[in-house]
């Protein structure tokens, strides 16, 4: 979202993946829900957790950490949430480890991705880094979590299904 004017604030939903804090523009987020029962989908890419029923609508849920390439099994806890975003005309759910708060962040506190960024998240997904009194939050561009190319590969049949359940 580039329409905010200079000097304005954006509201950022803070969520955690592991110990790292991320943020997403509240305007890109439709809602945040608890993790319901998820129906796995065979032959889908491994970061696709499956499908859920959101008030009568079936939507795909991905594991955001796996999407970013985080290795290893991670347990879902009672703090786990699904962030629902609207992509094109579809809703997509993203599982995160916790959603502790919503912050107001002045636009000028968000630096466009500096070279020295150490996050393991690919730069394509990052909108900027918010520096809030020493607390560094990676602001993601949630609409780009599935870029066109990835969407295509999602659709392609993936024969080698990893057992990640």
């Amino acid at each position: 979202m580039e329409k905010e004017e200079r000097g304005k604030e954006i509201q950022v939903v803070i969520f955690k993946l592991g110990e790292e804090e991320f943020g997403g523009d509240i305007f890109q987020i439709r809602e945040i829900i608890r993790v319901p029962e998820i129906t796995p989908v065979p032959q889908a890419p491994d970061f696709v957790e499956g499908m859920i029923n959101l008030r009568g609508q079936v939507l795909a849920v991905i594991d955001l950490a796996k999407r970013f390439g985080m290795k290893g099994e991670r347990e879902q806890s009672k703090d786990s949430r699904i962030i629902v975003v609207e992509l094109d005309d579809n809703l997509l759910g993203m599982i995160v480890d916790a959603v502790p708060e919503v912050l107001r962040v002045p636009e000028d506190k968000i630096e466009s991705t500096p070279e020295a960024i150490t996050s393991w998240v690919h730069r394509d997904f990052i909108r900027g880094i918010a520096n809030l009194e020493g607390r560094l939050i990676v602001i993601l561009d949630l609409n780009r979590i599935l870029t066109f190319k990835e969407k295509e590969s999602l659709s392609r049949t993936n024969i080698e299904k990893q057992d990640n359940l």
Partner: peptide, 27 residues
């Protein structure tokens, strides 16, 4: 029958999903 989320639509063998009586999603 509910349409699959567009990202999952091309998986061979899966035609759609539905929601059963208690809200479970079934392929």
């Amino acid at each position: 029958v509910k349409n699959l989320p567009s990202a999952l639509r091309k998986i061979k063998g899966i035609g759609g999903a539905t929601i059963l009586g208690k809200g479970e999603v079934v392929l």
